[in-house]
Nucleic acid binder design. Sequence first.
DNA 1: TTTATAATTGCAATCGATTGCCTAAAATAT
DNA 2: ATATTTTAGGCAATCGATTGCAATTATAAA
Lengths: 344, 344
Amino acid sequence: MKRQKRTTIYDIAQKLNLAASSVSRALSDSNKINAETKALVLKTAAEMNYQQNAMASNLRKGNNPTIGVVVPRINQYFFSNVIAGLEEITFKKGYNLVICQSNELHAREVEGVNALVNQNVSCIVISIAAEKGSSDHLQQVLDRNIQLIQFDRVVAGLETLKVLNDNRKGAYEAVVHLIEQGYRRIALLEGPQELHIFRERKEGYIAALNDHGFPVLPELMYANAWTKELGAEATSRLLDMQDPPDAIFASTSDFAALGVLEVASNKGIRIPEALGICGYSNEPFTEITSPSITTIDQFSVEMGKTIGNLHFQEMDHFGPKDSIKTVNVTPKLIVRKSTQRKQQ
Amino acid sequence: MKRQKRTTIYDIAQKLNLAASSVSRALSDSNKINAETKALVLKTAAEMNYQQNAMASNLRKGNNPTIGVVVPRINQYFFSNVIAGLEEITFKKGYNLVICQSNELHAREVEGVNALVNQNVSCIVISIAAEKGSSDHLQQVLDRNIQLIQFDRVVAGLETLKVLNDNRKGAYEAVVHLIEQGYRRIALLEGPQELHIFRERKEGYIAALNDHGFPVLPELMYANAWTKELGAEATSRLLDMQDPPDAIFASTSDFAALGVLEVASNKGIRIPEALGICGYSNEPFTEITSPSITTIDQFSVEMGKTIGNLHFQEMDHFGPKDSIKTVNVTPKLIVRKSTQRKQQ
DNA sequence: TTTATAATTGCAATCGATTGCCTAAAATAT
DNA sequence: ATATTTTAGGCAATCGATTGCAATTATAAA
């Protein structure tokens, strides 16, 4: 095994009898260098198999063209799509993408953020963990003048860029759709109210009911039905009521909606005739259940791209002080069989 | 906005009237430093909000505790799970994870790999793009003495660490299962044969047929049925044969299997009685189709962990020269309704 | 008390690329 | 022919942390 030491600009300089600074200028396409010299350097660099040492360059330049991402789980449909969209943009700009997952734990989130700060990344993109905790670590990011973009799940108090889905609107439209389909007792499966996304969806639900003259009934709002299992349990309870709902809006996730679907199917309840079901997120599987599930698409890949563009836009045009802006991505209702009981 | 300059070890040294080297020793927990001094430095560092500059440290130490990952698509179930598993390990070791996606394009793969080489990462983990191309970029990684771990889709000629699924075995077991269920004319949906994973699955299919005295019929092997759409098309063709298959093994993916399922259902063919269907990958949706789809689990999260462990193991115990090892992850057949026509 | 040894700490070079400043040569203007 | 401006390229400092070596002090041994 030939341990082939890395070629540096000094090696190139020596070979060509130049100063390292000239080599550097040639490689960085500076205009303070003769065209012929530049060409010669470029040619020699290629021959010598030169690859820039990014660490040295970044150190000197005092910045690291890298964006750090911290999400609860990388392998969750929504997040992996956001990351894919973001990568699309960062790659074009020659930026690197460093990824951490918090596993919904606050301590891990803090560790991840600190590691990124150490790396002196130029931006940290985060969707916070469900576990509650202080936001000192995020405040530190700001204090260190590193751009911070929160998305989806955000901390309210911090003055940062935010990219959000309009959860209120998504939920509102879903409920309006249910009303239009003739459902009259629409139940809500809620998520943990610590996360604003779930509060907003609840608001949308309530607003839609209010706007259409429907009563908001506490007995139809079921807390913490976050997973498929919890969704299933909630459904059992709701359907056992003396006056059960005729539609269930699983505002937490499509997984909860799937739980609803399974329980209702097992009970022999006809969907969508006797029970309407609507989920949230447009997970791929919602299309292939029987019946297919009405849900809300969050444009996750788009969201990732929006985040990336926002970063570069802000870098180019404004100083960090202007960075207290919120971009909303509008979700879209995807109507499928589980709520379609009127003919189109 | 207070542009708060980063605290360096020099700032700490100055404040405490020490040399920077002593501060460095205290922070790195060297044994060449007095315990009291160390404590004082640590305390002061915390007060001054010190965060190490990883770029400077890495430059000096000549290594970057980072693993780079290049995959075709981040937001594909299999890959996002591998990455999640890998992150689990790297995080524990304090390593960073940098991600690139090739989008199945060779040129982008090369670019991504080069960017990682520039970063001087200590390991590159890659699953190659479907698009064909030279593997010079990978050879360069080796020449530069950077560890290279290929997984899932690998280039044969290169002497690198590899983490693979035993695709042959997975396919073999699936076909044996189909035979045991009484299926007699088992068709195969093949993937692009440039990728060895698809060649191996085909081998497994053929071997199982041979071992059980079944003929291998070219007319039952359908090339390039990679996606749901292609799987659907293949199914139409196969079922229109004068002597159609009674089972279809979609060795390419569960998506292809889904295409099979939809076409067969629409034709009113009863599954699993008249047609058995088996996919590959254990995508989440296979559990919730009707009927649920028999498939092969690749233990993707485990695979990611295996990759991570392999890296650190090799680092600890061997020099890079020993790094020509292949680790196989054994897949597991998940039997579901789409192939169960005998009572258990 | 003197010498040998160990424990601390400081000094300065180093990792590799970038960049402000300066000089020499070449090009242009007077 | 002389003065002025450009252009090209070199020198050396710098980014921030690490580390081999030397220097100093404290401790132990003789």
